[in-house]
Nucleic acid binder design. Structure first.
Lengths: 253, 253
DNA sequence: GCCCGCCGTCAAGACGGCGTCAAGATCGCG
DNA sequence: CGCGATCTTGACGCCGTCTTGACGGCGGGC
């Protein structure tokens, strides 16, 4: 469900927004100060922030900058100030839209939908931002953005044992290796670590959740499966390396 | 250079916008009718459109829909109408922002920067191929602008199992496949993703609205119907691919 | 040289996701 | 007011995935 963070010091308006948004099926969190807003945003990870500029503790621009320091979450600003100056400042600080009070609830909701729509398509296109999205070895290619693994680097690996469904691809072309969600997640964590060692405990936390930490047999299971699917000779791993007694590491040659 | 398309029938305002935008370093194209706007947009591929709703030839919503049929270009609407109703209609039709006349040039420019900034993160699109209005496979053709699907690629697929109503079309000619609104919407989202994976949640958000996110059975239902209508062998999908545990993907071969 | 712990492997059962079928609800149209 | 098309919702069975346990080999420590 879409999470909205509403930041406003007027109890009245905060309640009204909360009720209206919840009625539309949004998951709403409320904050009444800038500090509380920043904390809630970090913890709650909202999909959109509705921010009143007239907060008691922090200046509006400070809140926007505090958010923009680490997140691209869409921000709709509410303000009683109609002046152009204020709008320009807020928008250039990183806000996505600016609505002057008093405003109609229908308009705000429509602007909210428009902003969410725009942000959603943007987020879907670039995974996070920058960062290496494709890691290549001489036997396979891991595409973190597209969430895919393709067999075939410079010198194509051996023919895959069984590929029934996919039409015959030209030799040397990229052929997809199907991974289950958990397999992918394990591989992703290792690849994102960029060659650094990942302890068993870290892996379990990332993939299975914080309440796991001792189930090392899970890792043995999934590392074996990944090696079977990715390594040229699974018995002698070249890429998915075991560090005995510590954890695992992805080596990109 | 960033290209802006300005659509307005008032000569005065058109000129003012043109001058101001050019002074800021934008590359500006001008149109004074809806028809001209659509044509210029297709040819010129602007990075943003500023659209006056009070055009002589076409209704404002028509112009927005005409653009949204094939492009995600950001649209800022100008209008003399202050009513909420008009704003909601325009924004829900696909506009990104709505500015009422008279407006301050500084505010418009700030809103323009904010909208461009938000849209830019999406600019890192798959290699220049840009936005295709028509996507073709060897069994059918999806026309995003015309909102149609035609059976027939190079070598026409087998005869459809049950097509009673349509008159006998000449062999190899394009025959339209009728899709319901929801079917079309699902297909459109998948095709627009351009081969990238779309999670179940994203699909539900786009098609059914943000308050949906867990009704995965809807997707099963509609994906099955689309496969029945589009796939040569619905039991073994070639185009509408399931990524188990994650979502769906459109594969254009 | 023996014991113990860690790791790779195999196998089986539990579980949940996915495709499918089917029926009711809803809406627009004649 | 009745009909058809479409959307919504529920149920069911199959299959792939996940979970869990057990076994054997290998190496290191004592």
């Amino acid at each position: 469900m879409t999470r909205i963070l509403v930041v406003d010091d007027e109890r009245q308006l905060r309640r009204a927004l909360g009720v209206n948004l919840r009625a539309r099926g949004y998951d709403v969190a409320l904050a009444e100060t800038g500090a509380q807003a920043l904390e809630l945003a970090a913890r709650h990870r909202p999909d959109l922030v509705i921010l009143d500029l007239g907060l008691p503790d922090l200046d509006g621009a400070e809140v926007i900058e505090g958010l923009r320091g680490w997140t691209q979450v869409p921000i709709i600003v509410l303000s009683a100030r109609h002046g152009e100056e204020a709008k320009v400042v807020a928008l250039d600080a990183g806000a996505d839209d600016y609505v002057t009070k008093p405003f109609g609830m229908d308009e705000l909701l429509a602007r909210l939908r428009a902003t969410l729509r725009r942000a959603e398509t943007a987020a879907a296109r670039v995974g996070g931002s920058g960062e290496q999205a494709v890691v290549e070895t001489s036997h396979f290619t891991v595409d973190l953005a597209e969430r895919r693994v393709l067999r075939g680097g410079r010198s194509g690996g051996g023919a895959s044992p069984a590929s029934a469904a996919s039409g015959a691809a030209p030799p040397g072309a990229a052929e997809e290796i199907r991974l289950t969600p958990t397999e992918w997640h394990v591989l992703e964590v290792l690849v994102r670590a960029g060659g650094r060692l990942v302890t068993g405990e870290q892996l379990l936390h990332e993939v299975w959740g914080p309440q796991y930490g001792t189930e090392l047999n899970y890792l043995r299971q999934y590392l074996a499966q990944l090696r079977r699917k990715l390594e040229p000779t699974p018995a002698e791993p070249r890429y998915l390396i075991t560090e005995p007694g510590v954890g695992y590491r992805f080596r990109a040659e």
